[in-house]
């Protein structure tokens, strides 16, 4: 897993902050040994304490909690794998896995779309590129809960903009956010709408790394724009595309805010639309079954880990690294 983040992190950096003097890391002097005095420890202490107490210790405890059951007034008893047995027989869990996969699958569609957009946007000499870029990025920085509330009104069955527009042309639209499957797709469309801007930022950074000589050489050899896109742009973008697909999976599996705000927590269709994280939240703070919730949490972690691992295994077949 650490490899994921290492690559993810460097991809992130390449995308967001072109560090001055790029080649610095290679000619970096060896780390200095035995610094003077205690001050490095002093610098590190708040970090170690904060992370330990508020992040890592809770994470370890989560795993422990997943083997326990919590009473109404607190206090836990060790129940072994009972939570996990229940997990495997729970139809809600299976449905939540399917929902989360469908949602993530729709988000993944955003990557090829963003590849085309990014290739068009990053053509040299394109006018208004900055305006386009800011427009596209806007939904990504906007607050997901706020955006979801807006879409909730757009989607509304009776007075929503979509259905009242459809009604004008004589079509009775579906009850978008209270019909099984439609509700999930409705959420995913908003997710897609928000994520394309982020995808494009990452891909734009990848495009900047493609040597222009390749396009010149291929043009001399008679390649048209379409051919250049297929044979140069896409293959050389595969590292960025790979990074995005890993990130999309991780983000997709943590669907929560938008589901909560767009459908509303008490929406009758929620049990058929909920994601794994929503199920987790509901178990932990709604039903107050913190042990079972922890087991769901561990399950999500395992699924994310598994998919990330598979993606890393498969990358050798399609990801093209320049070096």
């Amino acid at each position: 897993m650490s490899e994921t983040i290492e690559r993810a992190g460097s991809g992130m950096q390449a995308a967001q902050a072109p560090a001055p003097g790029g080649g610095g890391a290679t000619r970096l002097a060896r780390k200095r040994h035995s610094p003077d005095g205690w001050w490095p420890a002093l610098f590190i202490l708040p970090l170690a304490a904060g992370i330990g107490l508020f992040y890592l210790w809770p994470l370890l405890q989560s795993v422990y909690y997943s083997f326990t059951e919590w009473g109404v007034f607190g206090g836990s008893t060790w129940t072994g794998v009972e939570n996990y047995v229940r997990l495997m027989q729970d139809p809600d869990v299976l449905r939540a896995i399917v929902n989360t996969l469908v949602y993530t699958g729709i988000l993944l569609v955003g990557i090829p779309i963003a590849v085309v957009f990014a290739a068009l946007l990053n053509r040299p000499g394109l006018r208004f590129a900055m305006i386009y870029r800011t427009c596209f990025f806007l939904p990504y920085i906007a607050m997901p809960t706020a955006i979801s509330m807006v879409w909730r009104i757009i989607y509304n069955n009776d007075y929503g903009v979509i259905n009242s527009t459809l009604r004008v042309v004589g079509i009775e639209g579906p009850a978008w956010i209270s019909t099984e499957w439609f509700s999930l797709v409705a959420v995913a469309i908003v997710g897609l709408w928000m994520s394309i801007g982020f995808n494009m930022i990452i891909l734009s950074a990848g495009l900047k790394g493609i040597p222009p000589e390749l396009y010149e050489a291929s043009a001399i050899d008679g390649a048209g724009k379409g051919r250049q896109f297929r044979s140069i742009t896409v293959p050389l973008l595969t590292p960025s595309i790979f990074f995005l697909s890993v990130m999309t999976f991780i983000a997709g599996f943590q669907l929560f805010d938008m589901l909560y705000a767009l459908l509303g927590p008490t929406n009758p269709v929620m049990p058929k639309t909920q994601s794994l994280v929503f199920l987790f939240y509901d178990a932990a703070f709604g039903a107050n079954e913190k042990g079972y919730a922890s087991a769901i949490g561990v399950l999500i972690l395992l699924i994310i880990g598994l998919f990330t691992l598979v993606q890393f295994r498969l990358q050798r077949r399609w990801v093209h690294y320049a070096d």
Binding site: H33, I44, F54, P58, L59, Y65, F256, I304
Partner: peptide, 30 residues
């Protein structure tokens, strides 16, 4: 910049922190 006993351990703790989604820590954090 510096190497000292435990520096790598702290670095890997950081990586671990990045890898785990937050919600997993929420119940104990509570």
């Amino acid at each position: 910049r510096f190497q000292f006993p435990g520096s790598r351990a702290i670095y890997y703790l950081m990586l671990a922190g990045l890898t785990f989604p937050i919600f997993l820590a929420i119940v104990p954090l509570f």
